[in-house]
Structures are given as C-alpha cells and as structure tokens.
Design a protein around this nucleic acid. Structure first.
Length: 213
DNA sequence: GACCAGGCACATC
DNA sequence: GATGTGCATGGT
C-alpha cells in the first residue's frame, strides 16, 4: 500500500461525514470518565450517565471522590456494568490522589511511552482506553484502535480480520504523519463509518468506501 | 426476543 | 499464548 492511500481514505471519510468534533467533554478528567464509561457501551447511554453525574456536582476528581459509592453507582447505571465501572473509576481516582497529587498534570508530563505504560498498569484501563486518554486528553499522536476500525479495514481487505490491537495500530501509524488532529479526526470517522455502514449485520450497504481501491 | 454497543479482567487449558 | 466467560443497561 502506498503511503498516501490511507490518507485518501481519510479524506473520503471526512468529505462524507464532516468533522466529528471529538472528544465531547468539558475537561480532560471528564473525557477520561467518559472513556471508561463507554467501554463496550453505546455512547448514548454514557451521555445519560454523565448527565446524572453533573446533576450531582461538576465532574472533578475531588467531587467524584467525595460521592458515596451507592450514589455513584446509581448515577452511572444507564451506562451498564455499573459495579465494574464504579470500581474502575474509584480506583483510578485513588491512584491520581495517591500518586499524582490529585491531578492530571504530573501524569500528562510523562513521555508518551511511559504514560501509556502507567495507564495500562491501572486496572480497568486497557489499550483502547489508554490510547483514547493519550490522544484525546493528553493530546499526543497515538492512533486509537477499536472494533469498528478493524472491522472496516478488514472488510475492505486492508487488514486481516483477526489482527491484534497492536498490529492494527502499527499498520496505521506507519502510514500516516504523526499528527494529533489527524489521528483525532480519523478515529472518530472510523466510528462514524462503523456505526452507519459497517455493522456486524447487515454488512456494508451504501458504504462510502464501496468503490475505494 | 435476539443482537449489538466507542472493552477489560480473570479463569482455565 | 490462545480461548472462554462475566459484567448490565438501553436501542434497534
């Protein structure tokens, strides 16, 4: 594949869907909360959970830390897996308070590589959540892979269906300029493509990449 | 009623 | 290292 073919695909998607304006959040910390809440969950349900939290108090580390567990669970209930996600968020907040002076500054001061390692070591944060945080909150050029990305690319025979997260990430990042704005928009466009045209069933119908070669 | 959603941890082989 | 399972609500 020529270096610019993937960029062509990007422009095709951008033209079709327009800018996605990701990530929708009022702060870096709110973005991180959303990243954990949206694990294997429709964003629509996450919006309800975020809304519920905002009714209780502005979404800050201190405010969430102060919320009783039962109250917290009830608020994020619409996002599903609420027991697990409560545990994950409370754990993350505890780590920020105990090891990072209760903020994101010292964490985000780390080099991209160290930052990624630290995030992956936190229980409840896997590769996609870690990379989402690095790209959309810390604003470093790391490409976020998700089920839509792999499904879209494999359906167009650009990647094998069973390729791993790291393989897909390396394949994409090797072909693109390491640019935060580009990675931001491109990932969001893959999600838009996947939602509308690349669902498990029925397969591609009217897909904007139908004639992509 | 089945299937899916902007995953991850953990058990078992 | 690969494969399977639990987690849970809400929309189509």
């Amino acid at each position: 594949m020529k270096p610019n073919r993937l960029l062509n695909l990007y422009h095709l998607l951008l033209e079709h869907f327009g800018p996605r304006h990701w990530w929708p959040a009022d702060s870096s910390f709110e973005m991180i909360v959303g990243a954990i809440l949206t694990q294997n969950t429709a964003w629509k349900n996450v919006e309800k959970a975020i809304h519920n939290l905002k009714q209780l108090a502005p979404i800050t580390i201190d405010n969430l830390a102060a919320l009783p567990e039962a109250t917290f669970k009830e608020a994020i209930r619409p996002a599903g897996y609420y027991n697990q996600k409560t545990k994950r968020l409370k754990n993350l907040i505890a780590i920020l308070n105990e090891e990072y002076q209760g903020g994101l500054e010292s964490l985000f001061d780390l080099s991209t590589e160290i930052l990624r390692q630290r995030l992956l070591n936190i229980s409840g944060i896997g590769p996609e959540t870690a990379d989402s945080i690095i790209l959309y909150a810390a604003k470093r050029p790391v490409f976020v892979i998700d089920a839509y990305t792999v499904r879209s690319l494999s359906r167009h025979e650009l990647l094998p269906e069973d390729c791993t997260y790291d393989q897909a990430q390396e394949w994409i990042m090797d072909q693109l300029p390491q640019d935060v704005a580009l990675f931001n928009e491109f990932h969001a466009l893959f999600v838009a493509l996947g939602k509308e045209y690349c669902r498990p069933q029925p397969k591609c119908d009217g897909c904007p990449l139908e004639h992509f070669t």
